[in-house]
Amino acid sequence: MLKGKVSFAVFLGFFLFPSLSYGAHILEPLETEITSTPPRGQFFLQVLYGFLRTENGERVDEHFLPIEIEFGLGLKTQLNLEAETLIAEKENGHTEERGVEEVAIGIKHRFLDESDFIPEMAFEIEFAPVTELGDGQAVSGTLIFSKFIGRWFVVHANLGYGFERKEDGEKEFVNTVFYRAAVAFRAVPDRFFLIAELTSEHMFIEDGPTVDRVIVIPESILVPFERKPLAVKFGFPLGITDGSETPDFGVVGGVSVLF
């Protein structure tokens, strides 16, 4: 009983603890990139945990942990370091694979600020020396748009191209065109967001089939503190396309913080 009360007090204390920092960058949706960058000299850290289930003849469950660190270089530029760990990929309940799924470094620069009718624009270049649990490398470029629509909505959109080289016994080259879009409803301005996100990837595999992967993610972002730049995010990815590359459903949740 006492333990319960202490936990409750610590929990409340944690929520009430004031801080002296800020951040709008923490409001980035789960998948879609946004044009804003962390303030100069500050870090943005996002740690998520995700679970995806795909049933296509057999049941495949993926548990993964993407971690993203960004560093503000100036008013408009940031450096990225991203790593995704595959905690376990289970086929019919048996663990098949685990390890570092991907490591990527990149740079993002915002080259146009928002005006009345024109959205903000940024460009991001990424190099991933490790993909496919160490069997591949990739480069990608993404054009990013962000725009406030009135006082209640924010829209973000990404358009990108990626090239991946895989070597697992034999060499394989994959060209990917991808787009992402997120519409955020500012339910409580700067404190609670409801977001609908769409991510779409179209992979053109050399001498192989074209793979389409379209996912919608209803999600929400909660900023629990008044003066602490920390956001709690959770979403529920739902696969739209058929095939083993698209999950049927999943859960993703985590926190992002600016420091």
């Binding site: 409750f8 929990f11 409340l12 929520f15 009430l16 002296l20 920092s21 800020y22 951040g23 923490i26 409580v188 301005p189 700067d190 404190r191 609670f192 909660l222 900023v223 629990p224 503190f225 008044e226 003066r227 602490k228 730049p229 920390l230």
Partner: peptide, 21 residues
Amino acid sequence: IILCLLFVICFSNPSFPHRIE
């Protein structure tokens, strides 16, 4: 009760996470 308290704490002041130094 915890959920209600959290709601009150989070949204009683619909403010914003901005920097005060």
